[in-house]
Simulated assay, not measured.
Amino acid sequence: MRTLRRKRGPVKTAAPGSWVRRWAVGVSMALLVPIGTAVGGGVAPASAAFNPAAFDFWVDSPEMGPIKSRVLRAADGNTHRVVYVLDGQRAPETLNGWEIETDIPNALAAANINVVMPVGGMSSFYADWNAPSQFFGIPAGGPGGSGSGAADAFSGGPGKSYRYTWESFLTNHLRNALAQRLGFNPNRNGVFGLSMGGSAALTLAAYHPDQFSFAGAFSGYLNISAPGMREAIRIAMLDAGGYNVDSMAPPWGPQWLRMDPFVFAPNLVGNNTRLWIAAASGLPTDTDGPNIGTVNGMALEALALANTRAFEVRMATLGARNVHYSFPPFGIHSWRNWNDEALRMIPDMSNNIG
């Protein structure tokens, strides 16, 4: 789905009529299929892209082994302005979704920002997990699966043959390697992501304020302890590679609550981290065709919007003055929506890092 690499004029909104009815159906589906592919980073399969200006940057993780990131240098050659760009739940092991689906890495580099794109971490929430993903105490075995569907629940692969430790990797091993090998500033970095990656971006900023002075969450799940959300995430993780949410964090314990933006919101206020929080309405534009992918995307964005509005209220009760909210009147859970949101965000992020 490389629709974002062409120049586009202003996006037109769809005519009301039938789309209003589809939007109503979509909101209802959000309750029936709470996340599904919602944290998967899109409603359509990706077709791999490759940016020849970026390069592979390998760093060893004690628990996870060699991890690849893709790095794109700032246009002006500086090393003090750095952003980490996080993927969605279906993050593949080949390239980061932002490189696959959008031209945002080039836009960031043109804004004189160094781009770090971690690769992999399907269903990880970029967290340090409690244990390798397994079911009923049975370790995963055999080759990794397709990364799509609960049939992969007992297959091997990343996060199943070992314990995910993504937070430690991003805030320690990768951070230090970037500083030592490339001279990148380890402080006052930015981090943003979509869906799963949006929730994770806020988590990283909340607990590592020296590293991250800016965090952006697009269509994130920012109230994961709300009724039904854990089971929605359970279904989503089964669908995205056959992962077990209980291996990530036991239900309702300190580890789970630590991951919930609604719970750790006081950290973000106390740190005075600059935040960009976005979710669209779920109403499609005229570029979103009349198909099941669009209907699913409407439902998924409706759920993200509900979570984001709850987070907005929570931050308001804390007296937060460090947040910019973006609620576009049109947009579904799709890369086109996240591409446009990132373009809106870049100037604000540029002013709050380095």
Rank of each mutant, 00 (worst) to 15 (best):
213 S>V: 05
238 L>Q: 02
227 P>V: 10
270 G>S: 11
315 M>F: 10
121 G>I: 04
277 I>F: 11
236 A>Y: 04
315 M>L: 15
162 Y>Q: 13
44 A>L: 07
252 W>Y: 14
167 E>C: 01
296 N>R: 11
215 A>S: 06
136 F>K: 01
196 M>R: 07
73 R>I: 03
103 D>S: 12
2 R>Y: 09
256 W>P: 00
49 A>C: 09
254 P>C: 03
181 R>G: 13
140 A>V: 07
310 A>C: 08
342 A>K: 00
302 A>Y: 05
164 Y>C: 13
276 W>I: 10
286 D>H: 09
265 A>F: 06
309 R>L: 15
131 A>M: 12
149 G>Q: 13
95 L>V: 10
224 I>N: 09
206 A>Y: 07
230 R>S: 13
239 D>W: 00
344 R>M: 06
233 I>T: 00
232 A>L: 01
239 D>R: 04
149 G>K: 10
321 R>S: 15
102 T>C: 06
319 G>K: 00
213 S>W: 11
161 S>G: 09
289 G>S: 01
323 V>S: 01
159 G>D: 10
184 F>I: 05
75 A>I: 02
224 I>F: 03
280 A>R: 13
331 G>T: 01
341 E>G: 09
207 Y>G: 15
210 D>P: 05
29 M>C: 05
191 V>C: 02
192 F>M: 04
86 L>V: 10
170 L>I: 02
123 S>M: 01
95 L>S: 06
167 E>G: 00
247 S>E: 07
216 G>S: 01
194 L>V: 14
153 A>V: 08
122 M>W: 07
300 L>R: 07
321 R>T: 12
44 A>N: 14
251 P>A: 15
309 R>S: 13
154 F>G: 08
293 G>Q: 11
129 W>G: 04
292 I>A: 11
51 N>D: 05
13 T>Q: 14
264 F>I: 01
256 W>C: 00
